[in-house]
Design a protein around this nucleic acid. Structure first.
Lengths: 271, 271
DNA sequence: CGTGCGCTTGACTTATCTCAACGAATGTGG
DNA sequence: CCACATTCGTTGAGATAAGTCAAGCGCACG
């Protein structure tokens, strides 16, 4: 495993995606490697676990003794705000490391549960601590793992005040696993909670994107039809998507017209 | 120096304030202590620097060889977004540690400059690295420093979608240094940039808070007159501040009436 | 002394939320 | 296996918080 420099663009919009794809520095794998190299004695072993939809990995406030690495499926993390409302803090797919709080012996700030059938790898904290004591490299990777979390949060912070279409488009692109195919096992309500939107808005925007031919939805699967367009929307270069143009055009195209020829990704966005 | 548990409320709104007050785990001081205990040889020494208003501490992209601890004054950190706009990421007063990126040998993601006459303590990265190699305690404090940054970012994220009055009230309270006295050396434009508000809105809200008697402004100094009320606003328990009540009341009190008797912090908020 | 910038205030616009209604999907108990 | 309840998704009409545009004033700085 090499310790490559993160692409500078990681700092920006596509953080969630890069967390999945660019998992060159996965601490779980680093630990495995570490264990192989030094035949040290350690307490406990990494184990695989399967979770069903709705099953918790850990609860907020737990004093966990493991860190986790998502192998397949989707895990949602959430916090309970002082007013009692649930605030979803992320959806995590294969490659993401969860539960770093345990490393500094703090109660978990988030809860984590599977929103889909999910498998995870569970690594005892003791193993990480002992391993890092023996290796300056693993040491630095721990700091790096925390830094990556900071970069992710900064990215979220920078898009959290964008417009609703921007946030939704960015979210969809960030969840792209296979090329042009996105699996969204969570409800609109959960997407809305995560993006600070109301479920109605999520629904309306998905319909709008579909009318524009940017994507098509089939239950929980979404097929990306025009990634460039979605990227433009996410970046805020929404070509003529101001309501001025819309109000000018909304009399013209009301229904589901003109699916075929909107590849040039620069045209008014119907309401 | 004791390593106390962070107050749970740190996770929530008042993060910036707690970073100033509750700086029980200041890595700069930890390093000093470390140096005293172990008479180890090290490269470089911590030095004090004075900065004038507008002077940069470091620029975005710099490969810094120091971490910094703010001693007095105010430092603003900012990023340049892909569209070229400046996004302010924080205002930092005495006690805050800046420039942790340098520890993992990354270019600084933020720029930092003084918005006021400011003194800082500048510590060579090498000193921190060497020190942490010799002490498991300092090691953990490094992780802890990163974790605190994560907690702060999560706090910002949780309030960044609150209403404008909530965000501004929280900001003012977070900048309180001496009891009931706040120094805001930055412009309304900068406050707005930080809070994702437009300068006009900042101006209007400050006027509104003042009309309500929550505070009074004197140039860059703000006196807090009713911290309870501001706290309520920040928490979103804005007592009858919905526009329904306002529109009902706005005919009654239009000017700057009734300054004296609004201590009970539960009354409609004039527009 | 003028020019520019920061602050204030007003009038208007608009993106998003709220409320409401309805059908479809999903799960539950008999 | 069916009847029922509950949640989910969709769509419309209206309300509202905050942004935009515009104008005027005062201060600082060259």
């Amino acid at each position: 495993m090499t310790w490559t420099d993160a692409n500078p663009s990681d700092i920006l919009s596509e953080s969630d995606k890069s967390a999945v794809r660019g998992c060159d520095v996965n601490i779980a794998e680093a630990i495995m490697q570490q264990l192989c190299q030094s035949g040290s004695s350690f307490s406990g072993v990494p184990t695989m676990r399967a979770l069903r939809r709705g099953q918790h990995l850990y609860w907020p406030g737990d004093l966990s003794e493991h860190v986790y690495s998502v192998k397949s499926g989707t895990v949602k993390t959430y916090r309970i705000e002082d007013d009692g409302r649930e605030q979803i803090t992320g959806f995590h797919t294969a490659g993401k490391v969860l539960g770093l709080d345990a490393l500094v012996q703090r109660p978990m700030r988030c809860g984590a549960l599977a929103v889909d059938v999910t498998t995870i790898c569970q690594i005892p904290v003791q193993m990480v601590i002992l391993g890092s004591g023996e290796s300056g490299q693993l040491q630095l990777q721990l700091l790096e793992e925390f830094r990556k979390e900071i970069v992710r949060l900064e990215a979220r912070l920078s898009i959290c005040c964008n417009s609703a279409p921007q946030r939704l488009a960015a979210f969809i692109l960030s969840m792209e696993a296979e090329p042009a195919a996105v699996h969204l096992p969570m409800s609109h309500k959960e997407i809305g909670n995560y993006l600070h939107l109301v479920p109605e808005t999520v629904s309306r925007l998905l319909a709008r994107f579909q009318r524009c031919g940017w994507l098509s939805t089939h239950g929980h699967r979404v097929d990306i039809r025009d990634r460039a367009a979605l990227g433009q929307i996410a970046a805020g270069h929404m070509p003529g998507a101001t309501s001025a143009t819309v109000s000018a055009a909304k009399n013209a195209l009301s229904g589901a017209a003109r699916y075929e020829d909107n590849k040039q990704s620069a045209r008014p966005l119907p309401t």
